[in-house]
Computed example of a mutant assay.
Amino acid sequence: MTLVFDHLTLGQRVLFGTGRAAENLATEVQRLGARKVMVIASGSEAAMADAVCAGIEPALRWDEVVMHVPVEVAERARSAAAQHRIDLLVSVGGGSTTGLAKAVALTTGIPIVAVPTTYAGSEATNVWGLTESARKTTGVDDRVLPVTVIYDASLTLSLPTDLSVASGLNGMAHCIDSLWAPRADPINAALAAEGIRALSRGLPLVKAEPENFGGREQALYGAYLSAVAFASAGSGMHHKICHVLGGTFNLPHAQTHATVLPYVLAFNAPAAPEAETRAAAAFGAGNALDGLNGLRDTLDAPRALADYGFRKEDIPEVVRIALPAIPASNPRKVTAGNLSTVLAAATTGDDPKTLTDL
């Protein structure tokens, strides 16, 4: 069969090394010629940020970090960056921290060096997200792609095990969604499959042996691959649903993705046999859903949206907002009826296999 596809690879420097974040950051600040650095890190990660920034002298430290990046929070950070004439943003933290740096870069063009402390993957994409009036808006802009990502597995030690699990499964969602997203292609699929393999090997080690850097390095490597695939392939059904759950109902980002993922996989897999076979092989399982569910059982992963405050009576609102945004290229036709069924199962934590024959 002849291959025909159009693939875009984003340009970004990646520095990977356990225990080397401070050294690598100092090197990058010097290489980029930055004179006024704004360090973005939440208050809870201030000590970690101090350690990472030991080799530089920040002009400004910013600790107002809020999940889903409310517009008003972004505006305050943008104003501070302008007032201090910042020429480099350094984000130290998870997806919310990276997201705030992206919000500043979106309107200012200031470059970002991202230092992730979770497996969120936002650091490797040119996708931004902002929330205003209970609506999350996302977009794509190369200005928000960090010029450099610094990975250091030791920085993930402070992440509680349950949040490590949810964050890693968020990365897994990037991989699986990339297999049937609007711009899916063979290169994205190869990256996504390797991401699934790395995450499915690394996350159980993170849970079983929290001090094991080998597992954490595999999880970080997998999260990076997942994000690169996602950035190229685009946002599929899973992410369109989760953006509404997070932006409109303020559900926690990582846990929401971890919960919804098996239901979207169960819904789409029968209509996407090539993607399903590739994912199954990456899991080392007979089929992709069994592979994912086996991993989730091992990790004691989040099970139900209701555990985070979501109610069945909110499903029609999610359907109303999400349905028009789900790509027409989704492997199975999505209707208000079957989307409601998917959400109902995810709300109560029903067996995802019930959706395969929907």
Rank of each mutant, 00 (worst) to 15 (best):
L295Y: 00
A275T: 00
A21E: 08
G202T: 11
S42Q: 10
G99R: 11
Y308A: 14
L245S: 06
H253R: 13
D357W: 13
A193D: 03
H68N: 12
Y221D: 09
R35L: 02
L159Y: 05
P186F: 15
R278S: 05
W180D: 13
L245K: 11
I86C: 02
A223C: 10
L292R: 00
Y151K: 11
A74M: 10
V92T: 05
A114Y: 10
P262G: 00
G17L: 10
T2G: 01
G94R: 04
A285K: 06
G95I: 10
L15A: 13
R31A: 15
M67P: 01
S235Y: 00
R61L: 08
Y119S: 02
T137L: 11
V90G: 01
R76H: 09
N338K: 14
G234F: 06
D307M: 02
R320K: 14
F5Q: 09
I315G: 02
A275H: 01
G99Q: 09
G222F: 08
G222D: 07
G309Q: 10
I315L: 06
E28L: 12
N188F: 10
L251K: 03
A304K: 11
L191C: 13
A190S: 15
D177R: 05
S226A: 15
V147H: 09
Y224V: 10
A272Y: 01
H253I: 13
T277D: 02
